[in-house]
């Protein structure tokens, strides 16, 4: 067994080493694959806060992923067409600046998470799953009907957005941005998990009624976790849209929610780097098996089945054993 903290380090070093190897060997497509894995990992780290720490099985996280994507798409579209996003009551211009786009993506997805969470967290169990799924689908169908931004066909952005001091069109530079954000969010996630808030949230997941007797409001704890989770997933959505230079209603679909959940379960729920491992394995399988068969998800399904049946801590749990007590 490898201790989890060493495994986490190894996973991140490998995720960094692959694109560097690809850069040396002039394989930009591999860098794009690693970037895709890093972005998926970021989205899954977001879900892991709600699912792993808070025990909130959300099937609607695609809503936040899509909101982040559309925040990027709309702002960049208006910047490239030189039209304002809105003129009344005040003028809001589009922008090609990544930091501003990220901020807008995080604020909008966080606001959506707050509103969805306020309603959804009145329910638990299967009802919570269904209500989050319903919200996700509402956003999906709204985006299809939103003709101003491409409707069902989606919205193309011609040039990747700008980041101060970096040429983002160079694949390794964009990977560096995504990887840095992933590491930063993992660091924050680690801090949150060990903070009094994270401990209280963990306690609320285990025993919501008992936690009230020590003066903690489980609803509020879960709502904060849900919003934080939505913010991170929204940021991932903005990066994903920038990677593809394209947004479409697919980002809102329930399959996207399912895939983000698969990353978490495959890698290990509530394990810090579980979502990263899950996303990397997913992208590797997608690339390796996708070329062999259109129905490669069958193999993914089989792997997921094996993990759920025989490795309850996911792939991270399989390699490093049960999560050790925090020290």
């Amino acid at each position: 067994m490898i201790r989890e903290r060493y495994l986490n380090g190894l996973v991140l070093v490998l995720l960094l080493a692959v694109p560097l190897w690809a850069l040396i060997n002039d394989q930009p497509f591999t860098i794009t694959l690693a970037t895709r894995a890093a972005i998926f990992a970021l989205a899954a780290v977001g879900l892991n806060i709600a699912l792993g720490l808070g025990g909130l099985v959300s099937l609607g996280h695609a809503a936040f992923f899509g909101i982040g994507g559309y925040a990027m798409g709309i702002l960049a579209y208006h910047a490239q067409t030189y039209t304002p996003v809105m003129e009344l009551p005040f003028v809001i211009e589009g922008t090609k600046s990544m930091p501003i786009i990220w901020l807008v993506a995080m604020v909008t997805s966080g606001t959506a998470a707050l509103l969805i969470g306020l309603l959804s967290l009145r329910t638990t169990g299967v009802y919570f799953i269904m209500i989050t799924l319903a919200f996700g689908q509402m956003f999906y169908f709204f985006s299809i009907s939103w003709i101003a931004y491409g409707g069902e066909d989606g919205l193309s952005i011609y040039i990747r957005n700008d980041f101060p001091g970096l040429n983002t069109l160079v694949p390794i530079n964009f990977f560096a941005i995504c990887f840095t954000l992933l590491c930063l969010v993992l660091f924050i996630n680690g801090l949150v998990a060990r903070s009094p808030f994270g401990l209280a949230l963990n306690a609320a997941r285990q025993a919501p009624q008992r936690v009230q007797t020590v003066g903690l409001d489980p609803q509020r704890l879960k709502l904060v976790a849900f919003v934080l989770s939505g913010v991170i997933t929204g940021l991932a959505g903005a990066l994903f849209a920038d990677l593809n230079r394209f947004v479409s209603p697919t980002m809102f679909s329930w399959q996207t929610s399912g895939e983000i959940m698969i990353f978490v379960i495959l890698g290990g729920t509530a394990r810090l780097c579980g979502p990263v491992v899950g996303a990397v394995v997913f992208v590797m399988l997608e690339h390796a098996l996708g070329g062999l068969s259109e129905y490669w998800h069958i193999y993914l399904g089989a792997l997921l089945l094996l993990v759920v049946l025989f490795a309850r801590g996911g792939l991270v749990g399989l390699i490093s054993g049960r999560a050790v007590a925090h020290d």
Partner: peptide, 11 residues
């Protein structure tokens, strides 16, 4: 699932 210290810190 929490350690002794974490049980106490949470409250």
């Amino acid at each position: 699932d929490l350690t002794v210290t974490e049980n106490l810190q949470a409250a």
